Simulated assay, not measured.
Amino acid sequence: MQLEQLSSYITQKGDTWDLISFKVYGSTDYIEQLKSANYEFLKLVSFPEEVALVIPQIEIENKGSTPEWF
């Protein structure tokens, strides 16, 4: 299921790869895709403010976390 996604993200102080993945994709399953698109920041674990990251468009699978009736 493809959802509308951002093409870039500006970090907030303390953002981490998993938190950014959750914020933009709704899941921490896409950390590797984020890292691949932003290889120049791989050494960062916690981001400072205002780092512009590329957010790749990916196919997001619905894993059934939302009830069918919703």
Rank of each mutant, 00 (worst) to 15 (best):
Q2C: 12
L3C: 14
L3H: 11
E4G: 10
E4Y: 10
E4I: 11
L6H: 13
S7V: 09
S8K: 08
S8V: 12
S8Y: 07
S8Q: 15
Y9F: 09
Y9S: 07
Y9L: 04
Y9G: 10
T11A: 05
K13F: 13
G14W: 14
G14T: 14
T16K: 06
T16E: 01
W17G: 03
W17A: 00
D18Q: 00
L19D: 08
L19P: 00
I20P: 03
F22P: 00
K23E: 00
K23Q: 04
V24L: 00
V24Y: 00
V24N: 03
Y25V: 00
S27N: 07
S27M: 01
T28C: 01
T28E: 05
D29E: 09
D29Q: 07
D29M: 02
D29Y: 09
D29A: 08
Y30W: 03
I31K: 04
E32F: 03
Q33W: 08
Q33P: 09
Q33V: 06
L34G: 04
K35I: 05
K35G: 03
A37S: 11
N38P: 02
Y39V: 06
Y39S: 06
Y39I: 05
E40D: 02
F41T: 09
L42C: 06
K43G: 11
L44V: 01
L44I: 04
L44W: 08
S46V: 13
S46D: 07
S46G: 06
F47R: 03
F47T: 05
P48Q: 12
P48C: 05
E49Q: 14
E49L: 11
E49F: 10
E50Y: 15
V51P: 08
A52W: 14
A52S: 14
L53K: 02
L53E: 05
V54K: 15
P56G: 15
P56K: 06
P56W: 15
Q57Y: 13
Q57D: 12
I58Y: 11
I58H: 10
E59G: 05
E59Q: 12
I60W: 11
I60A: 04
E61L: 12
E61Y: 03
N62I: 07
K63D: 07
G64H: 00
G64D: 02
G64R: 03
G64S: 04
G64M: 04
S65H: 14
S65I: 10
T66L: 08
E68V: 06
W69P: 09
W69E: 15
W69N: 15
F70N: 06
F70Q: 03
F70G: 06
